[in-house]
């Protein structure tokens, strides 16, 4: 298997962590992972992204070529980083934060999840946004198993936040399954 994911946002939304957890999960499953973050924007609050490639074999070329899963939490990050998506890629956006260009709705499978609102409502603190995003990814893709993501997140989560992180995952998963009733898998 070969899977390319891109998480994009504006600095500080925790998407770098989401990418790291995906990579950690892949490695826990004995797969290979490669992650490339954008460099300066992440510390300056500008548009930022992280690319994560997961493969059952050693990853040779470490840059993305056809992105299967794209998550965006800001219109400017969407515009800046939407190049290189595979045809029919799964695109997950927060509808309150991203205006998806008309043409893209035909090219890609767009899913709208109000990630920030869900996080605020169910967790109260936006630090859990990345875990909610991971939950949506689990529900929409087959790249890694739910239980390995839980394990990887537990290992990275600061002490005392484990319960909230698990809950955040559930919020993401449940929204995709129960509200969107999406059964697409990439």
């Amino acid at each position: 298997m070969h899977f390319e994911a891109r998480f994009s946002a504006v600095g500080g939304q925790g998407i770098i962590l989401a990418g790291t957890i995906l990579a950690d999960s892949a490695i826990l499953e004995g797969k290979y992972a490669a992650g490339s973050p954008t460099y300066t924007a992440q510390v300056r609050g500008g548009p930022t992204k992280v690319d994560v490639i997961v493969d059952s074999e050693q990853i040779l070329f470490p840059r993305t070529q056809e992105i299967n899963f794209f998550l965006s939490l800001a219109t400017n990050s969407y515009k800046m980083f939407c190049k290189g998506l595979a045809d029919n890629a799964v695109v997950l956006v927060d509808p309150h934060l991203v205006d998806v260009p008309e043409g893209d709705k035909e090219k890609y499978q767009i899913f709208e999840v109000p990630v920030i609102e869900l996080t605020a409502e169910h967790l109260g603190r936006l630090v859990y946004t990345s875990a909610v995003c991971l939950g949506t990814m689990i529900a929409l893709t087959d790249v890694v198993k739910e239980e390995t993501v839980r394990e990887a997140l537990k290992r990275r989560a600061p002490r005392g936040t484990e319960m909230y992180n698990m809950k955040a995952l559930d919020v993401g998963i449940n929204y995709v399954r129960d509200i969107l009733k999406a059964d697409v898998k990439v």
Binding site: Y32, S36, P37, R63
Partner: peptide
């Protein structure tokens, strides 16, 4: 190079 310096892998 910058690819390897910033690339994360196992």
């Amino acid at each position: 190079d910058e690819v390897l310096g910033h690339l994360s892998e196992g």
